[in-house]
Amino acid sequence: MLDSYSNFVKSLENDRPKEHWSEPLKAMWHAEKGNWERSHDIAQDLHTTIGSWIHAHLHRQEGDKFNAGYWYRQANRKYPTNTLAEERREITEYLLA
């Protein structure tokens, strides 16, 4: 696993995430790389609170506020007011903690 957000950011230079990473962390890696489809494919198969949070973020990014709102509720989170980049970092740091 990674020990810091800065190491995660450095990993974005690679062609793919590390195989031993958790699925949620891989989803965030793909989101940071701009691969919405791959990130969404992973997130929709995560039937957990964190999966719902990632799923919500992706639909927020997509501009689908209604669908995002549903997934934020599933994740027990309020609809965020921070930027998408700030939320990606927040989710990633949560996963790294």
Rank of each mutant, 00 (worst) to 15 (best):
L2V: 11
L2N: 08
L2C: 11
L2A: 08
D3E: 08
S4W: 03
S4G: 06
Y5K: 07
S6K: 11
N7R: 13
F8E: 07
F8M: 08
F8T: 05
S11Y: 11
E13K: 10
D15W: 04
P17Q: 05
P17E: 03
E19L: 08
E19D: 10
W21G: 10
S22E: 04
E23G: 08
P24F: 02
P24A: 07
L25G: 07
A31L: 05
A31Y: 05
E32G: 15
E32A: 15
E32M: 15
K33G: 02
G34V: 01
W36C: 02
R38V: 09
R38L: 11
S39T: 01
H40F: 01
H40A: 01
D41R: 04
D41M: 07
I42C: 03
A43R: 00
A43Y: 01
Q44M: 00
Q44G: 00
D45V: 06
D45K: 07
L46M: 00
H47C: 09
H47A: 10
T48S: 00
T48R: 00
T49H: 05
I50D: 04
S52D: 01
W53K: 12
I54P: 04
H57Y: 14
L58S: 03
H59Y: 03
R60P: 11
E62M: 06
G63R: 05
G63E: 06
G63K: 06
D64V: 03
D64Y: 04
K65F: 13
K65G: 13
K65L: 13
F66E: 11
F66C: 09
F66N: 11
A68T: 08
W71E: 00
R73W: 04
R73P: 02
R73V: 06
Q74P: 01
Q74C: 02
Q74G: 01
Q74M: 02
Q74D: 02
N76Q: 09
R77F: 07
K78E: 15
Y79H: 15
Y79R: 14
T81A: 13
T81Q: 14
L84H: 12
L84M: 13
A85C: 09
E86P: 14
E86R: 15
E87Y: 07
R89Q: 14
R89W: 11
T92S: 11
Y94R: 10
Y94F: 12
L95P: 05
L95N: 07
L95M: 10
L96G: 14
A97M: 14
